[in-house]
Write a protein that binds this DNA or RNA. Structure first.
Lengths: 188, 188
DNA sequence: CCCATAAGTCAACAGCTGTTGACCTGACTG
DNA sequence: CAGTCAGGTCAACAGCTGTTGACTTATGGG
């Protein structure tokens, strides 16, 4: 029964950040209060401000993450999807920050801008090696399908998509991604 | 210069509803206040509550709409996309209610449920005539691409998608929709 | 053992929110 | 022309929000 009420500053900071990610991912930026997060950690709301400056600062940190997309330059084209799809699933299902950002991006301009950065600074370059030409256009189209899938499966919970297992989903989606990546673009 | 400050109740109600649709579509459910909407119409916030009961009631009405999807039973399969795509564009670009609902659906559970209803009660049945089998699964996949496109183009504003004209977008997307609608499903 | 200090609490603030009920007012009707 | 009543205003409420500064307490190093 040793009274372990005190912890190190960095541990508390990390606990707040974790709780924030979970909350923001599940309920969205506007519907989560500083008091909610502090409550989850068992700490006074003032600590949140102390460690992160503001709610906005906390969110910015909670929604920051790296897609760590593999370099497709080393991968033979016919294996692109075997590399890409598992990676996407892993990001969506293990990274609360991504869902948090997606939820916020529909109403918060800064989050929307951050989402765009993700595209132009991480997705587009990674796909540039795979796309035959017009990389930004192809990346945007591919991204739209990916975002729509995340939205439908993890945010809205569209039943057929929730029930479908990863393999079947991959088999449905992969030809589409291939299409966006390698198909001849529409005439002129 | 006759003082037309008074209008009919129904005219005021309609004006509030219009302003609400625009605001909700542009800023989302949580970031729009009753005072904002009332201000747009030039009316006291109390009127909003008088005519719609609550903010929630107003939103429910503002986000209610009909997709009016055509019956694909009469259309030969090779013309599906010629019928579907213009219809989708028309809904997205002339119907603020749809954007309002999409923005809200990422955080508001009732809105998410309403979005699901839209799928199961309007999209899936309309596509049932076009899909060879497994209509709900195919409709969900098709819907995910459509939602992703709306999100990317009209909400996030992904540059390549914003700049692309409707025809080119149709040419990119149509094969994908066809794939979801008619392709052999993944093995078992 | 003591005390400086890191870690945390507490109460309060100012602002905004949806919502309410009492009140006002202009126009039509008898 | 008086009075009714639909259409609209007004002030205020209670609750919640992010944020602040002053206070408290445990703990580890001298």
């Amino acid at each position: 029964m040793s009274t372990n009420r005190r912890r190190s500053a960095s541990a508390t900071r990390a606990a707040i950040l974790d709780a924030a990610r979970v909350r923001f991912a599940a309920e969205g930026l506007d519907r989560v209060t500083v008091r909610d997060i502090a409550g989850d950690v068992g700490v006074d709301p003032a600590m949140v401000i102390r460690y992160f400056g503001s709610k906005e600062g906390l969110f910015a940190e909670a929604a920051r993450f790296d897609l760590e997309l593999p370099d497709l330059g080393d991968v033979p084209p016919e294996e692109f999807m075997d590399v890409l799809m598992p990676h996407f699933f892993s990001v969506w299902e293990n990274n609360a920050g991504f869902l948090a950002l997606l939820r916020a991006a529909t109403t918060d301009k800064k989050s929307a801008a951050k989402m765009l950065d993700l595209f132009t600074e991480q997705v587009a370059p990674a796909l540039a090696a795979a796309a035959v030409d017009r990389a930004p256009e192809r990346a945007a189209l591919l991204g739209s399908q990916m975002l729509g899938l995340v939205l439908s499966r993890y945010v809205l919970g569209v039943p057929p998509l929730v029930e479908m297992d990863r393999e079947r989903l991959r088999d449905w989606i992969a030809p589409v991604l291939r299409h966006y990546l390698t198909a001849e673009p529409p005439s002129a």
